[in-house]
Design a protein around this nucleic acid. Structure first.
Lengths: 219, 219
DNA sequence: CAGCTTTTTTAGACTTATCTAAAGTTATTT
DNA sequence: AAATAACTTTAGATAAGTCTAAAAAAGCTG
């Protein structure tokens, strides 16, 4: 019970339950996976039988301990492969998602543990997302979206909420990378956009961009 | 038309056609893949429709140009991943086959070309097998099984015919590695076993071992 | 709160890859 | 060359994962 398909369902449910806190709805899963609600309904029954999710008809679903462990292991593999692709094979951070999506299903703990050592046991992937440990622990970062900063406050870029190719390429175009220092110099009430000082230059970032850019304020 | 399953059929047919020269039989494929002849028969029809094989009922099958290209690309990926596993992740040569068997299905030319560069464009995998180029060229090595050497002749180990875990571990136990010099000091008519000088020591190798060990005699 | 809308589930069907059993083809042997 | 053996194909069934259409449940809305 750990096919390609099952793993994708479990991963989708994990991601959605991060956002919603509530039980994850059938429709939300269908949309996330590009399938139909009927298909998801069938699958939820199977996942439930295999004790990967808690499920009562019409009630949405949540992962069991087993399901969560599976999800974290897939995410661990995905993020370690992303580090490999960027650090070793010199892919850009906006190019790695789809390939990692395939590599994450390779089934070998030995492989992934050796890969982790080879990469120098990184704690974060190229988008700033934390990499779960072998034991399934995942670090919660102290970070806030840039929208939380007031005028004259400063933050260091720790990650992105939206890892889409489009957003990452936008950040590249602005020259914004993980670790960069950003100082908010202006907030426009009109559209909630912000002007920030970045490497000596002033750039204006829309509210949508600020929402999707995480920063750490202390240190 | 390039599912996991199809790729495995194509790879099996390629390997078998190396050995047999003749058209590959349904039964041989079934045995290689651990399925039944009936299943193979069905699949051959489909592969034929997709112009990956030449196929006439009861006649055995051979790969078309397309099929051969697909096979060589899979083999290229398999062998490059094996180099990665051994050179970078420090797996032993007898441990890498099964993992590479999964990795070979990852679908990205960009990935595999970058991997090739990262590995220093190796020409051979850890078992001495040549790695097909991006253009689908595969080098034919000038090598012979150790059974071809007469008494007092010398060869350098270039590869193995049998890449099974068992055989590779046997070679490890004897301390025999790719590149080693072997000098045949004795051939026993009784069982066709050979005594060879290896790193100053004399070892006796059975006929079966000699058959599966390739050496290059010139230079 | 009764009716309408949205969401979810069920029912039945399709595709891919597999199987067993039976029938058909080719090869071997006497 | 007929009988037998071996191999291959066909036929019908199964399991996983998907779909559409229809039924059932939950949630809004006036």
């Amino acid at each position: 019970m750990a096919s390609f398909t099952v793993e994708n369902y479990i991963k989708a449910i994990y991601r959605l339950s991060q956002k919603d806190a509530e039980g994850v709805s059938t429709n939300a899963i269908a949309e996330a996976l590009g399938t139909k609600a009927a298909t998801v309904s069938d699958m939820l029954k199977k996942l439930s039988q295999h004790k990967l999710i808690h499920y009562k008809k019409y009630q949405g679903t949540t992962l069991t301990k087993n399901g969560r462990d599976m999800a974290l292991n897939i995410i661990r593999k995905h993020r370690l492969w992303e580090v490999f692709l960027v650090d070793k094979l010199e892919f850009r951070w906006d190019e790695v998602h789809d390939i990692a999506e395939e590599l994450e299903h390779i089934d070998s703990d030995e492989l992934i543990n050796r890969l982790e050592d080879f990469l120098g046991r990184p704690k974060f992937d190229p988008h700033g997302d934390p990499i779960p440990t072998r034991e399934g622990q995942i670090e919660r970062r102290e970070q806030v979206p840039l929208t939380e900063l007031k005028t004259n406050e400063t933050g260091y870029v720790t990650g992105v909420k939206d890892s889409s190719k489009e957003f990452l390429q936008y950040l590249d175009a602005q020259g914004i990378e993980l670790g960069n220092k950003l100082e908010v110099t202006d907030i426009f009430d009109y559209d909630k956009s912000r002007t920030v000082k970045h490497q000596g230059k002033l750039v204006t970032l829309s509210q949508q961009v600020c929402k999707n850019l995480f920063v750490r304020t202390e240190s």
